[in-house]
């Protein structure tokens, strides 16, 4: 297929995955505003901002004490992360970019997919923070996440399984891996030295993984076990391992691309990433400083995942025409 269309679909996958990820985090966060201690709310905001590598508006990471401050600050932060058009990571921006990429590749996706996405866009585009805050912000984030899930479901049910489908999936998987690694790194970074169960519980909930965790590990929440689940679990839909394996599978299904050198490197790197998340992660327990090793592994996973994105671009979208095969 046309390289630019494939790239457009790849970015549809990436932007919408990002939008959904943010929806889930913000949903948890506005829920926490109702009944959780101030420290936990602050931790939640810190975790989101650090994972996005973005400074909160005003530039401070330390929040004023007391409930009133927390609520007022939260309103500002939620606006920044939800509707701020100059923030490229805001829900609005991710959705707008995803929809724009879909608009330009509308002939490559099913009509049902387009309509489902456009309807969601028409709804979100008509709202602002004041409206959702005045009603129920939880409902807004839940609905938006559901709309993105619905889009994915409609895609699953209606899209022809051609290259376009694969590139969209590839974008989703790479984005999912990148977001997960960034969030785990932010978690380690922002978490209290004294292990705080609530901080790790909310992380599990962001991945719909709390029940799975309890089934495997019982009621006590331990950071190491949480990380294990989110990184290596074979059944958890958003675990790092599953995201990376799915990315590798899509790459393999698409096959070698015209950027020959990048193509070979991408294949090797995808395998390496899977091995890191599947085997090497478990090996960390054998070393003395297991926690330091976790941080190192996550950094490595993040670097490699970023590289995988670059290689995808060089392999299929921005390859040099000198060596490209003629058909």
């Amino acid at each position: 297929m046309l390289a630019r269309s494939a790239e457009g679909l790849y970015w549809v996958g990436r932007h919408l995955e990002r939008a959904e990820h943010l929806c889930r985090l913000l949903w948890l966060q506005v829920e926490a505003l109702v009944d959780r201690p101030v420290e936990e709310i602050h931790f939640g905001w810190r975790r989101i901002y650090r994972s996005l590598r973005r400074a909160p508006p005003g530039g401070r990471e330390e929040f004023g004490g007391g409930d009133d401050y927390t609520l007022a600050d939260s309103y500002t932060l939620a606006d920044d992360l939800t509707f701020e058009p100059t923030n490229p990571d805001s829900l609005w921006s991710c959705f707008a970019s995803g929809r724009e990429n879909a608009r330009q590749t509308r002939h490559c996706i099913s009509g049902e997919m387009w309509t489902s996405l456009n309807l969601a866009w028409l709804r979100i585009g008509a709202l602002d923070i004041k409206q959702i805050w005045g009603a129920s912000p939880e409902t807004f984030y839940a609905e938006t996440a559901r709309e993105i899930d619905a889009f994915c479901g409609v895609a699953e049910a209606t899209m022809y399984r051609d290259e376009g489908w694969r590139f969209m999936r590839l974008g989703r998987c790479i984005e999912r891996a990148l977001l997960t690694v960034a969030l785990l790194r932010a978690q380690l970074d922002a978490a209290a030295e004294e292990e705080d169960e609530a901080e790790w519980t909310s992380l599990l909930r962001a991945y719909h993984a709390l029940e799975a965790y309890h089934r495997q590990h019982g009621l006590a929440i331990a950071s190491g076990a949480v990380l294990d689940l989110l990184v290596t679990d074979a059944l958890l839909p958003r675990s790092l391992r599953r995201s990376l394996k799915a990315a590798a599978a899509e790459l393999a299904a698409i096959g070698p691309g015209p950027g020959i050198r990048a193509s070979a490197e991408a294949t090797r790197l995808a395998e390496k990433l899977c091995a890191l998340a599947e085997y090497e992660w478990h090996q960390r327990e054998r070393v003395a400083a297991a926690q330091a090793r976790e941080a190192t592994l996550l950094r490595e996973l993040e670097g490699h995942s970023r590289r995988l994105h670059e290689l995808t671009t060089l392999t299929y979208f921005e390859y040099g025409i000198e060596d490209a095969p003629l058909h």
């Binding site: 297929m1 046309l2 494939a6 015209p258 490209a324 003629l326």
Partner: peptide, 17 residues
């Protein structure tokens, strides 16, 4: 997305020109 090579027109596809 198009280029001309040796008197023929090609488009940049994911599989090459």
């Amino acid at each position: 997305d198009l280029l001309v090579n040796d008197g023929a027109v090609y488009m940049r596809s994911t599989a090459g020109l």
